[in-house]
Design a protein around this nucleic acid. Structure first.
Lengths: 180, 180
DNA sequence: TTCGTCATGTAATGGGTTACATGATTAC
DNA sequence: GTAATCATGTAACCCATTACATGACGAA
């Protein structure tokens, strides 16, 4: 239900709201948001740009006014249309379970500066409840593994739990900051 | 190249080496290894069991000798064949870049008790070098983002870096333990 | 002039999830 | 007797990656 393409579209629109960019650069920035692993492929990116352009949300920007500085002729620089800006605002104002998964959350958070404060809080709290559920599941899995005592499996599961706890502490800090 | 199915097959054989199990239970255990999110689907598991059975690596075990305790008639309990045991031993003795990714590493580590010591060390060291590379990429991404200073993006990237550093510390501990 | 990087693009492949169908067992 | 869970299984769909093709530019 949360297709990766949606996340990608959101990220593209958000990044373009800062300044016009071409695909190659866009890919690097999206990867910077999602983490270095899971970099998106060009086979996803370029078709997505086409789709967004066809939908009228982005358009090819006029070539830079400083031709001397922009040597790469083949670059295709995209910018938000006014329709795209509107659409982005709607997306930024939305929240819900779809925004709490790992990748959607990363994109939402990267665009927090553009996001209304109350929405920011709701997303952070939603993420927190998701992680609390995940933590509970992990702890249950741990207690069930303890029977067949395997040090390595146990150690790995313990490490995983501590990782989630760490992220929860981080979220709690963010939520507190957001409230003040 | 590292199809998830391979990881799944490995996990199945490894788990069955401990005791015969049926699909439903197998799924829970595999999910316990991979983490609660990314639980594998039945649409992956049952076909995998079929394939392994056809390949002669596992077989349906004879119904339990204690019929009173095993009420669920419809369970299909699988066990390793002698061929499957051999195959598992080969897999356990192998190492290489394929074993260092997130999911393959999780499975390998969950089966460390069955893995020769020298192979354990090589896998841990390989994983460490992978994470070191990942850390470098993240740090580079961070330094590039610092220009367009967005507190939220920056904070998230910083948090990601610290997560990788944490995993590296954990790995280093494990490597030290393994050497003594 | 050659290599590495920058840059855009498309088609096929694959494989995992989703959705659906079915039925046994236990607890209330 | 009925809801929730346990348990197995299949088929279609989706869509992201992979692999490939192309070409400009800067440096050595």
């Amino acid at each position: 239900m949360i297709r990766r393409g949606d996340v990608l579209n959101f990220a593209i629109l958000g990044l373009l709201s800062d300044s016009p960019l071409h695909g190659y650069e866009l890919r690097k920035r999206v990867s910077g948001i999602l983490g270095p692993f899971r970099a998106i492929s060009y086979g996803s990116l370029y078709p997505a740009l086409r789709t967004l352009a066809t939908a009228g949300l982005i358009e090819e920007a006029a070539p830079s006014s400083e031709p001397a500085l922009v040597s790469r002729r083949s670059r295709r620089v995209y910018a938000l249309t006014s329709e795209g800006k509107e659409h982005l605002q709607e997306m930024l104002a939305s929240y819900g379970p779809d925004t709490w998964g790992d990748e959607p959350f990363a994109v939402r958070m990267a665009l927090f500066s553009l996001t209304p404060t109350d929405v920011r809080l709701r997303i952070l709290e939603g993420r927190r409840s998701l992680l609390e559920g995940r933590l509970a599941t992990l702890q249950e899995a741990l207690s069930q593994s303890s029977d067949r005592i395997d040090r390595y499996l146990l150690g790995m599961q313990q490490h995983g739990i501590e990782g989630v706890e760490r992220e929860l502490r981080w979220l709690n800090e963010l939520i507190e900051q957001e409230r003040s």
